[in-house]
Design a binder for these strands. Structure first.
Lengths: 121, 121
DNA sequence: CTTTTGCTCAACCAATCGGTTGAACAAGGA
DNA sequence: TCCTTGTTCAACCGATTGGTTGAGCAAAAG
């Protein structure tokens, strides 16, 4: 696994089962067995998934007798959101500028060199 | 690879090299060779990374003579943003409600059964 | 036509992933 | 004390990943 935080978060959420767990944990904390119940895998597999989510900082664990309740930590989402928004905005900004350039293209400038077809506006 | 779109996008961005490519493509379109230049890997490896980004719908390709310029498609980001925001909001909402519950807790109700330590808030 | 440029395909490799089974451990209940 | 419950650890397995090299192909340039 790539060591950096952002990679860990993205890759943790790249798995549908883990995303479903996050979705359910957004509603309420849950134990490993509760989380495992709907899925067609062993509780050990779920425990592994939880370790991935925990390493990504997406969930935290506490203790309640033998149980180890899982709690969703929503703050880490910010890391992703910030990254995504940054580049989306940048790309959209670029798109907007391209639009401006095309709109302001002077008539005496022909960006397409004449070809055999000879078609240029 | 998990077949669903969201998994493909998350997993595409789970790699630092691919995130860096996206960052650079937000500034300007680029050819495979241009993209490969800063990295310490073969151009074939970069071509593979691009295939992953393309399968996730994050980039598109066009044709310019022998070149196959890469263009960032910012719209797919929405898919992620929507998913993230949904569960973050839900988790934060739950946190807020928990706060309310604690604040409105009547004095004669002790939610924690007495233990040997006897400590309860 | 031949060569060069830009890129992709195919085969391979080591490392990681998501899953399994089996054993272990920690804590409460009989 | 022994048993049951909840969870994790360890070892293993097949599939996938990110990388390599080598060959091939399409289009421009010579």
């Amino acid at each position: 696994m790539a060591a950096d935080a952002l990679s860990r978060v993205f890759s943790a959420l790249a798995d549908p089962t883990r995303r479903d767990m996050v979705a359910r944990l957004a509603v309420a904390d849950a134990t490993v067995n509760q989380l495992a119940e709907p899925y067609d895998v062993t509780v050990q597999a779920v425990s592994k998934h939880l370790k991935v989510l925990q390493d990504a900082g997406l969930v935290s664990r506490s203790r309640d007798a033998q149980r180890r309740p899982v709690h969703l930590e929503a703050e880490v989402f910010d890391l992703m959101t910030k990254w995504i928004e940054r580049y989306r905005r940048q790309a959209e900004e670029r798109y907007r500028r391209l639009d401006d350039v095309l709109r302001s293209m002077p008539d005496d400038v022909d960006p397409i060199p004449p070809t055999s077809t000879g078609v240029s506006r």
